[in-house]
Design a protein around this nucleic acid. Structure first.
Lengths: 187, 187
DNA sequence: AAGTATCTACCTAGTAGTAGGCAGGCATTC
DNA sequence: GAATGCCTGCCTACTACTAGGTAGATACTT
């Protein structure tokens, strides 16, 4: 039996990524985890606390994913390919989007510290992508790189947009289709 | 004085695009339009009816935008540039996203006919984009077009992702930054 | 005995939606 | 031409339900 706090974080992350911040409730989490609604407040006094904890957990987990990718692959092309695969597998069966995407819509309903955490996450991703495009340009494993920072911003938008496409169509292959062009540039 | 039904549609579209489907209520619309909450039900019996009407109105309006672009510009590059500008201006000050993006998150909370309308909208955009990339490839005003259909899918994801970036950062220039690479391909 | 985790039972505020009424416009009918 | 009846648009006042959150009791652990 995993501890309840972690179970709540997991459930909340899944709920947020499938239904958005305004789309899930403490009642949903309680039913999912198997405790009473009021008991959640013992672990997370307010929804804002839970939301921030979910965001921070997500950030740490994704940073670790990036580290693992860097450790497993040396070329820029291979690393970008692995990141695309990570985003793709995070999709589930086309029902989940990145936490940032899910929270972006509810931007005005979340607290400023969660918004700040979203900004931190995006910043981390942009830096990693910029470094990866720079490397891929240097080692020749990513074609036609002119400006690594511009590539990074476009790639992040593309990854997030592709998740939306997959979700809208309830079809994970829509993600692949949206990324086909970028993938074809990787050697 | 515009008629109340149209005022409601306008208010609902704005609310949906800034707060998402789960983020706005009849009370919000009532306060915005200046009638009582219950009176909205006179025009739209259920929220699902209103939502569908908003989506259909949006679809028609965007189709007209595409027609206007086609009438005003002949080259593929100029047309794509104009579409990017249309998406950019629809952003407002970085607080509004496309209806499809907003509803995508709440996919499981909206009715099937609204989901179908979202699919129709995306299909229309993909067809228009494919035709535009084909034209831009033929007349040489869009560089490096290999597969117009793949370009269309990537472009739509990029446009929607760029809107999310602008919204997350509350900064419309984030949209420009995400699209800089694609814009540089247009002659 | 103390602290942690959970419970039942409740609260306030807000959700979509309903019931029934009222004022005024526009016909038709006597 | 006045009376009748129907319609639109909006109202007040309500229902049933869900939201996040609280208080206090109870059980389990150490």
């Amino acid at each position: 039996m995993t501890d309840t706090k972690t179970a709540l974080l997991r459930s909340a992350e899944r709920a947020a990524r499938t239904k958005g911040f305004d789309g899930f409730s403490y009642a949903d989490l309680a039913a999912d985890v198997g405790i009473r609604k009021a008991s959640i407040h013992h672990h997370f006094p307010a929804k804002a606390d839970l939301t921030l904890a979910v965001m921070q957990r997500y950030h740490v987990a994704f940073a670790e994913t990036c580290d693992r990718i860097d450790a497993a692959h040396t070329t820029g092309g291979a690393r970008l390919h692995a990141l695309i695969a990570a985003y793709r597998s995070a999709l589930g069966n086309g029902e989940m989007v990145c936490l940032c995407v899910a929270f972006s819509i509810s931007r005005d309903h979340i607290t400023t510290d969660v918004r700040a955490a979203m900004g931190d996450f995006r910043q981390m991703m942009l830096e990693w992508l910029t470094a990866t495009f720079t490397r891929g340009n240097g080692d020749g494993t990513i074609a036609q790189v002119a400006d690594p920072a511009a590539e990074a911003r476009a790639a992040l938008a593309l990854l997030e947009g592709a998740q939306l496409a997959a979700r809208t169509q309830a079809d994970p292959t829509a993600f692949d289709a949206a990324l086909a062009l970028m993938s074809s540039r990787l050697g």
